[in-house]
């Protein structure tokens, strides 16, 4: 095996890791906030319609279409290019992050909705009788139970987002996949390069799986025996 080659290949590929992690983390963060807002909107009739349409569009179309729509589609219009949005949309980084964030919000909002629905009515009623305010109920009863319920599905969403960041290589960003593609175009050693890049993502997703299953245990002491 060509050890020096693989060492330098990994060094090259890992130089894209900060961008991959940055996009995944910020997309998940922004997506989560947006997903919360979408669920809050569902308390009103128009809000429900808007949230429903949003989720329908973003879950019914491929992320690649959404990404190209933002990167190529919107930028086509002169009024966008002369607007305050242009400094953001001019940069491939922001186009990629916005697309990932909007996409993640649609999936996360559905996961949250499922979690919220699984919160037993009785717990909220019990909290109300014991004199908690609405905010207190949300923070101390509803959200903790909903988050615990949604955690397994959300763990899948984290991994899915991590994998989705690879698409930004289509808009000239040099994440792990972007670097791999360029290396392949230059050296034609496709199998080695893509396998090494795949390994990096695999390790990341294993770390996420470990971390979320720990969180699951920590959040459900009654199932796994309380900690000292």
């Amino acid at each position: 095996m060509d050890v020096p080659y693989f060492a330098s290949l990994f060094r090259d590929l890992l130089s894209g890791l900060p961008l991959t992690l940055n996009l995944a983390f910020l997309a998940l963060l922004g997506g989560f906030v947006l997903a919360l807002l979408l669920n809050l909107a569902r308390t009103t009739r128009t809000g429900t319609a808007i949230a429903g349409t949003y989720v329908f569009f973003f879950r019914g179309t491929p992320l690649l279409v959404q990404l190209f729509m933002i990167y190529f589609g919107i930028a086509q219009f002169e009024f966008i290019r002369s607007s305050f949005l242009w400094p953001l949309l001019r940069e491939p980084y922001w186009c990629g992050l916005i697309a990932l964030m909007l996409n993640d919000a649609a999936y996360t909002s559905e996961i949250l909705r499922g979690g919220l629905r699984a919160v037993p009515r009785g717990t909220q009623e019990a909290a109300r009788v014991s004199g908690m305010s609405s905010l207190q109920i949300l923070r101390r009863v509803t959200l903790p139970i909903a988050v615990r319920q949604a955690l397994p599905a959300y763990s899948n969403e984290i991994i899915s987002m991590l994998k989705s960041t690879a698409l930004v290589s289509m808009i000239s960003l040099m994440d792990v996949t972007g670097i791999a593609r360029e290396a392949v175009a230059e050296t034609w050693r496709a199998v080695e390069i893509f396998l090494c890049a795949g390994l990096i993502y695999l390790v990341l997703s294993l770390i996420v799986t470990r971390a979320t299953s720990r969180a699951e245990r920590a959040l459900s002491p009654w199932q796994f025996g309380a900690r000292q």
């Binding site: 994998k163 690879a166 392949v184 890049a197 993502y201 294993l206």
Partner: peptide, 23 residues
């Protein structure tokens, strides 16, 4: 299952397409 759920789809497709003949 673990490998295929942990690697980006795009990379798997590239791998099969570019590395396809070798595989």
């Amino acid at each position: 299952v673990v490998v295929l759920r942990g690697v980006p789809d795009l990379l798997v497709i590239f791998l099969f397409y570019f590395g396809g003949r070798q595989v």
